[in-house]
Amino acid sequence: MSRRLPVYLLIDTSGSMKGEPIESVKVGIEAMFSTLRSDPYALDTVSISIITFDREVKQVLPLTPIDKIQMPDITTPESGPTHTGAALEMLCERVDSEVRKSTPDQKGDWMPILFLMTDGKPSDLMVYKAAVEKVKQRHFSSIVALAAGPKAKTDELLLLTDMVYQIDTMDGTSLMKFFKWVSGIIEEGGKSIGATDDLELPPPPSEINVII
């Protein structure tokens, strides 16, 4: 079996995402799939998993090669908390069981990439802070967080990664740009063969502001 580039998408599906925001996210993800399916390198290597989080945390798409992916159903509850911490817990558990490490008999996967998108802040802050430390032990080559919409907080996301981006509105155009950029990072990720340091990111689109 050939080596995969595992990509984990963590998507906030809390009540506030209901309506246009979540629909825009879905369209963005589908567009990203479509972009990756037309890239020969991605088609050979990229595998994607989607974990959604609101009160409940669900892996709606187990780690699946890009050519086999079918868009999963993504739904949002009416209201309720945002269990970002629990989502990171599940992420670590899934990475441990799904991502292959090198052994004498098996070639390991490429280091995984993580994208987290939220429009709020973790309701389970204690769990979140503990889970951030666990995530850091999982050797992600890149972790990118997107704080989307006016209520999204960046302070907690900065604990997870220094690559935190912000968009002010949750409309289709902004999210599409973000997912297009994400596709670029994934395409770039598979090609940085031999990288031991963090991946070089392509420059972000102008609408997204880097938080330092």
Partner: peptide
Amino acid sequence: DEGEFSGQT
């Protein structure tokens, strides 16, 4: 020289 993940050397 190989690491836990592909590409580490």
